[in-house]
Amino acid sequence: MTYGKDMPGSLLGVPDNWTAEGGGTSLLKSQRLAVLPIDSYDLASEFSVVDDHEYGGEYDAFTFGSWSSHVLANGSGADSDTSFRPHGGRMALTELGKQLPGIMSLVTEHFPLDRLQWVRIFRAQDAILAPHVDFLEWAEPGTRLQIPLRTSEDNLHSENDIVYHLRRGEVWKIHTTDPHSTRSSAETARLSLCLDFSGADEPIAIRKEIPATEPIRLIERPEATDVELKELLGVGNDFSPETMRSEFRRFVEFHFERRSHAAATYDWYEEAARLTGNADMAAKARAFGTYCIEKRADGEAFLW
């Protein structure tokens, strides 16, 4: 797995023609589809319900910090049915979904329900996701929309070599089949509504949207210096089998702070592990990259 020197730009994988003000927008595959009148919904009390809701840890392999997934509707209506998978039926409300009528009204008033399969809220605070590709487990990807309900400017998404911000109420079609990640701030717990629809190519008809008045917010990051990159790789000197999972977070942080490709995170991580001289750790680092962005089976769990 190599996402560094073979990519345009450099080891950091930055295309030569990329600029935060210009070319980055044309290269961003995720799309802002609409803006919802979210201020017309009184959701503050429902946010508190989500904040207090327990999370079962189904996606802990991908997450670092306080990140959780909360299911409002799925194929069964069961609270215990929390691991995403496509299904052929219509969605059913879970007990949590029944406690959040305002958020569900936001869904039903603006989105078609015939293809909608899952409604979830992702909560993140001082958290980061491993760069990953969704839907590797299934033959056909679906359509995933995200709508931030509570956020701040410090909460960011990335896709390939681009970092960008989703504003509150913006409806984004996430390009899930390229490596992407998110990072949240420590102060504001981000709540993002996630809607999964069957079918990857059919458009989603959104109703009652309002005009988008602000340009898409791309985040400009400085180039990494050789010294910074060597320092990052030198972290591997402190690796051990017990700490290598927690050490991974700083490699993703580097991607958000310096111009780099999300997938290059795994090259750096594997190289840092290799520099320890421990072949088993290098193999584990390589296997984690494969699991996150190349290949994994339905229900497969990554064991550190």
Rank of each mutant, 00 (worst) to 15 (best):
E270A: 13
G97F: 05
P215R: 12
V35W: 01
A92N: 10
Q125G: 07
R274S: 08
A279K: 15
M244Y: 14
E270K: 11
T176G: 04
T213C: 08
T25L: 15
Y291V: 06
F197V: 03
F47L: 12
E95S: 15
K284T: 13
L96G: 02
L27G: 07
R120I: 02
L275W: 06
S185Q: 01
H53N: 13
R259W: 01
N74V: 01
A212D: 12
P37H: 05
K230L: 15
C194N: 15
W138G: 03
F197L: 09
W268K: 01
N74H: 13
Y269L: 15
L191W: 07
F254K: 01
N278Y: 07
T276F: 12
S83L: 14
E140P: 06
V35R: 13
R250K: 12
E228S: 03
D114P: 00
I219T: 09
F122K: 10
G102S: 10
L11G: 13
E271H: 08
L191N: 03
Y3L: 11
F62A: 09
E140M: 13
S76V: 02
P112W: 09
E202K: 07
K98C: 13
T176I: 01
R123S: 11
A283L: 00
Q117Y: 08
W118C: 00
A282S: 02
G56H: 03
F254C: 02
N74E: 04
P215Y: 06
F256D: 06
S192I: 09
D6H: 13
Q146L: 09
G24A: 14
A34Y: 02
